[in-house]
Amino acid sequence: MHSSINYKHLKYFWVVANEGSIAKASAKLHITPQTISGQLSLLEDNLASTLFEREGRGLKLTDTGRLVLGYADEIFSLGRELSDVLRGMPNIGPSEFIVGAASSLPKTIVQKIIEPGLLVEQDITLTSLEGPVDMLLADLAIHKVDMVLSDTPLTGTLNIKAYNHKLGETGLTFFASPKLAKQLKHNFPQSLNGAPTLMPTSQYSIRKQIDFWLNEQQLYPMIKGQFDDSALMKSFGQAGLGAFFMPSIIVEEVCKNFAVEVIGHVNEVKQEFYAISAERKIKHPAVSAICNNARTSLFV
């Protein structure tokens, strides 16, 4: 008969299984690899079963490991639900709502998407994080964030149990400073050929899409800068260093905040937006409000 399971050991196993290696789990948990390895050995001894086998430089779950992982998912999911319930009780203060937004997303759109989540009846306080989407999804997997906003859906290439909730999509609009816009408004989009242009870096899906569209149109702008941060790209555009594009649903805000003008619209390319959560059926009231508003009001 097995003795009672040590849930700290089970938590270490769960993170290793989701991260794919002890080294990655060590970085995530801020615990030495030796400690994690020792705790896993104790768990395997307790269960009288091997949970992992080596596969190259990583680890692969055994049949028993996959069985244990299924139970661990349920256990920690229930723990998260309990935490959500307790955080939502009125006698313990505001419920913290933690959102991770991919750094490629324009801040204005992130604000528009998130805002309805703060208007629900429950007292909610927002914590907003941003960074590379793969790091945010790793935090989602271990319930450090409630929701991740991205313009690309989660795919099976990441070993993360999470679900995509499409919020909507929008075309793109090109902008430029008034002086440059005066030159580029006429005969758009052909006016982009050879024009100084600012772009997101190639790691982002929307950059690949716009590159494909430009190639189809046989347009070859002069790339004057590439940016991870959309706000910085807009600032360079405001300074007149090149044309740039943003999602069409924030045209008014971009023109007002950065003193630029519209030079043309591209409806053939659509930028999509997703809320990614750890639950298939949305239960968190803020996430539910965000999805409902995006689908009925924002992206229409």
Rank of each mutant, 00 (worst) to 15 (best):
A138P: 01
Y7E: 13
R57C: 04
F175Q: 06
Q209T: 07
P153I: 02
Q122M: 09
P221M: 10
A17R: 03
V133F: 12
V16Y: 10
K28Y: 01
I250T: 06
L140R: 08
K24R: 14
L184R: 13
D45C: 04
H265N: 14
S235C: 06
N46A: 11
N215G: 04
P221E: 11
K234A: 15
E169W: 00
S37F: 10
A48L: 13
T201V: 02
Q271M: 14
K144N: 15
S37R: 15
E252Q: 13
K270H: 08
V287Q: 09
I92G: 11
V260S: 01
K166V: 09
E252A: 11
E115H: 12
L82S: 12
H143K: 15
G264T: 02
Y220E: 03
S235V: 07
K8G: 13
A141S: 15
P33M: 12
R295A: 07
N215F: 10
M222T: 05
M89C: 09
L42Y: 15
A25K: 14
S26G: 06
L129H: 03
F227D: 01
A72D: 05
Q238A: 14
K60F: 06
L119E: 14
K185W: 06
H143I: 06
Q226H: 01
L47Q: 05
Y7V: 01
A23N: 11
L129P: 00
N18T: 14
E55L: 12
T32V: 04
F174H: 02
K185I: 03
L167T: 12
T127M: 02
H284R: 13
L119V: 07
V266R: 01
V16Q: 12
L29V: 03
R57W: 03
V120Y: 10
G237L: 00
N293T: 10
F299Y: 08
L126A: 03
E268H: 06
C255A: 09
T62V: 04
I124R: 15
A195S: 08
E44S: 13
V251F: 02
G20E: 07
Y274C: 01
G20H: 04
H165S: 01
V110P: 03
Y204G: 03
Q190I: 07
R66Q: 14
L219R: 00
A23E: 13
G79Q: 15
H186I: 04
L198Q: 03
M222R: 05
D228R: 08
S77M: 05
S297P: 00
L140T: 01
T35F: 14
E19C: 14
L105H: 00
S77Y: 03
I276G: 08
D123E: 14
A259K: 11
V262W: 11
H2N: 13
F175C: 06
Q271T: 11
L136F: 10
L172N: 06
A48G: 15
I124C: 12
I160S: 11
S49Y: 04
V99K: 09
H30E: 12
Y220L: 02
L59S: 02
K112W: 02
T108I: 14
P94F: 07
A101G: 05
E19G: 04
F273K: 13
A278G: 12
F13K: 10
K208F: 02
I113K: 08
